[in-house]
Write a protein that binds this DNA or RNA. Structure first.
Lengths: 137, 137
DNA sequence: TGACATTGTATCAAAGACTGATACATTGAG
DNA sequence: CTCAATGTATCAGTCTTTGATACAATGTCA
């Protein structure tokens, strides 16, 4: 469900938060779903339970999860598309996308290969049936 | 030329390295170009010169830049597309792209808006004239 | 009801990374 | 030769991250 990289410069709890947010955004996690106990997930990942607890707490503070002693952690909200976007945030996101695609080019991916990656991700995120007849300018 | 964010969890020198690599991959920097002196860039960004020097050194170690006391830092190599890609690296890149696009959806971007972002980035990376007649599956 | 396993939370310490201040070494210009 | 410009090295301070451990709350089962 979650994978982490010990080599990455991004902290472990941030990696977990990012992936959970991604699952919440893509439908991999929906309201009512229970998350694995901190000890279990920490054990699976081979890290300390505090690190997982911290990730859960950050999302709890964000209003996406709810935790209670003895009862576990559940999803109470998911982020739905259509929310208001600030321009600064939009620029940051486009920058992030551009950075990822630059990495692809940097690693030797050609445009066709990159396009295939994007296609897969679009299908995964917005549904298999979503079609984009053309993306030419 | 370079912008940094003090709020980001990613270290300053990593931010600089990422953006420089991106410039090297996109043609914003080519062989022979001189980089700003560490003191100047550090001053512009409002950070310590060591942080910039570290970023330069990392790229120097990677063989992309060359630095010399008193003479400055110049680009000696750029990364060209077509290099061999390992599968693990490819998966990581696709994961990165997917993460960026998930962020977009998370922030409320619809598929059309995301597609527009991608379109701009493709044009920027692989040239204005590059066309992608369709990206449907 | 009471004991106990399960789960999240809090506290504290250690280790490491990042950033910065400062001094040093090299190059080139005048 | 002098000196400004530039990259490099060293050291210290501060913060973050991670982990070990103990605590608190909830639910289950005898």
């Amino acid at each position: 469900m979650i994978t982490i990289s010990m080599n990455s410069p991004v902290p472990l709890h941030d990696q977990i938060v990012d992936q959970l947010r991604r699952l919440l955004a893509t439908g991999g996690l929906t309201v009512g779903d229970e998350l694995p106990p901190v000890r279990q997930l920490a054990g699976d990942l081979g890290i300390n339970l505090n690190t997982v607890a911290r990730a859960y707490r950050e999302l709890t503070d964000a209003g996406l999860l709810a935790s209670a002693r003895g009862r576990g952690t559940v999803v109470i909200a998911t982020v739905e598309a259509g929310a208001e976007i600030r321009q600064a945030q939009r620029d940051q996101i486009e920058n992030h996308i551009g950075s990822a695609m630059a990495d692809a080019k940097l690693a030797g991916c050609g445009p066709e290969e990159t396009r295939a990656m994007i296609q897969r991700q679009i299908a995964r995120l917005w549904g298999e049936d979503q079609r984009f007849p053309e993306i030419a300018r």
